[in-house]
Amino acid sequence: MSMREKTQIIIAASAYGAFFGITATMLTLAVVGLFPPTDSTQVDRPLNTFARVDEQVIDLVQTANEAVVNITVSKKISRSVPSNLDVSENLDVSGQLLEVGGGSGFVISEDGLIVTNRHVVEDEDAVYSIVYASGQSFEAQVLAKDPVLDIALLKVDGNNLPTVPLGDSDTLRPGQTVIAIGNALAELGNSVTRGVVSAIGRRVEAGDGNGRNEILDHAIQTDAAINPGNSGGPLLNLSGEVVGINTAISSRGQSVGFAIPINDAKKTIESVVRHGRIIRPWLGVRYVPVTPRLADEMQLPVLYGALIIDGTSDDERGVLPNSPAAAAGLQEGDIILEINGEKLEDKDSLAQLVARHEVGEEIVIRFVRKGEERVLRLILDEFPIN
C-alpha cells in the first residue's frame, strides 16, 4: 500500500472517529441535561411532578393553618419596666396584664381541645390566650399537663372548630418530608418550614430556645426549622396529618430540631378526653440508660438496661420515697433489664415500657443487683400530680 493510500485511510479513520466521538459526547451531554432532548415531555414530566408536590404542600398548609393557633402568655407585672420611648424614664405597668411569652398549639376537637407543650403553659400565675390565623383571640383554660412528656392540653369554648387530624408516627421513615407550623420567635404566627425526618427514636437533651432543657425519649429529629415559639406546633406529613409535636432545638447545631411522636401523646389525649385529667402509671425511679460505653466506664455486668442512680442533690433519690419501686425494694445501683419479659434495649426506654401498662397493674421486673440477676413483682400506682 502506498504512502498516499495509508494517509487517506488514517485521515478517514480519524474523521469517522471524530464523528462518532462528537456524536457520543452530544448524547452524553443530552443525558446529563446540558443539551435538551428532542422530546420536550421528558423535561416537563419531572417539573410537573415537583409542581404537583408543591401544590399539595400549599393545599395542606392552608387547611392545617385554620387549626394551628398561637398561644400568648400574659402576666400581671408588679414593677416598673424601662420605657421604649425614653431610656431616661421608666414605664409604670404595675398591675397591668402584659404579654411575656408565647408558643404554638393545634386544635384536635371541634369543641376546642388544643395540644401544646407543657413548658409553654408551665407558669401557674399566667393567663393564656390562643390566636387563630384569622386574628381571632380567645382565653384558654389549661386542662392538664403531662408529668412525663412535654405535653399539655388547653380548652377554649367553641363548636364546629377546624381541626387537624392525628396521623401514625410509627410509620415515619428517615428521609420522609415533613412540615412544621408554628409561632416562630413568638412573633411570626403560623410560620411554615419544610424538611425531612433526619432520624427517629432519638434520646436527647435539647432546649426550647428559651434556656429550658428537656430530656426527650423516642424523639423525631428533623431539619425542618423549629425556632423558639414553635414549641407545641404540629409536625405534619404530606397527608396533612400530625405526626409529631414540635418541642425542642439543639443548641449545638443548626437545622437540628426534635418533636414528640404523636403516638406517644395519644394516650395522654385519650386520658383527658375520657377522665378529664392525665392518668399515668408510676414506677418511681431515677435512671440512666445503660449503653456499652457506660457499661465499660462503670464496669457494669450488663450492656443494656436502666441503671437506677441518685441525682446531683441530696433530695434527688434514685428510688423515690413512697413509690411502687420503694415499696417493692428496688435500690440505687440496681439495673432493670426487663419488664414483663420485654428487654430495655435502645428502641425502648424504661419510661416507655412502664407507660404501656395501666395504673393498678402488676408487673414483673427482672434486674441485676451486685452482679446477681433477681426478679420482683410490683403494682403500679398513679403518677402523682406533684
Rank of each mutant, 00 (worst) to 15 (best):
M1C: 14
K267G: 04
G135Y: 04
P321M: 04
D146A: 12
V290L: 06
S109H: 02
A225I: 10
H357S: 05
F20R: 08
P261K: 10
L143I: 08
R173N: 11
A224S: 05
P281S: 09
P289Q: 08
I11L: 01
F258N: 03
L378C: 10
V302K: 05
D348H: 14
A206E: 11
T38K: 06
G33M: 07
D111L: 01
E122G: 11
L294R: 07
A186S: 04
P281R: 13
D381K: 06
F19R: 04
E122D: 14
E361P: 07
R286M: 08
K76I: 15
A12T: 13
L113C: 07
A306P: 06
V290T: 06
M26C: 15
G257E: 03
G189V: 09
H218G: 05
F20V: 06
Y304K: 10
P228M: 08
I249E: 08
D86G: 08
A328T: 11
T163F: 00
L300V: 15
A184Q: 09
R118M: 13
I262Q: 01
L350P: 02
E205L: 09
A219R: 02
P384K: 12
L47D: 12
L166F: 15
M1I: 15
G305T: 13
I245N: 07
D44K: 06
E382W: 07
S74F: 08
A224K: 08
A12D: 08
G305Y: 11
K370D: 14
F383V: 00
R52K: 09
E297H: 10
S137L: 07
V364A: 15
T41V: 02
I10Q: 09
V375T: 05
E110C: 03
Q299W: 04
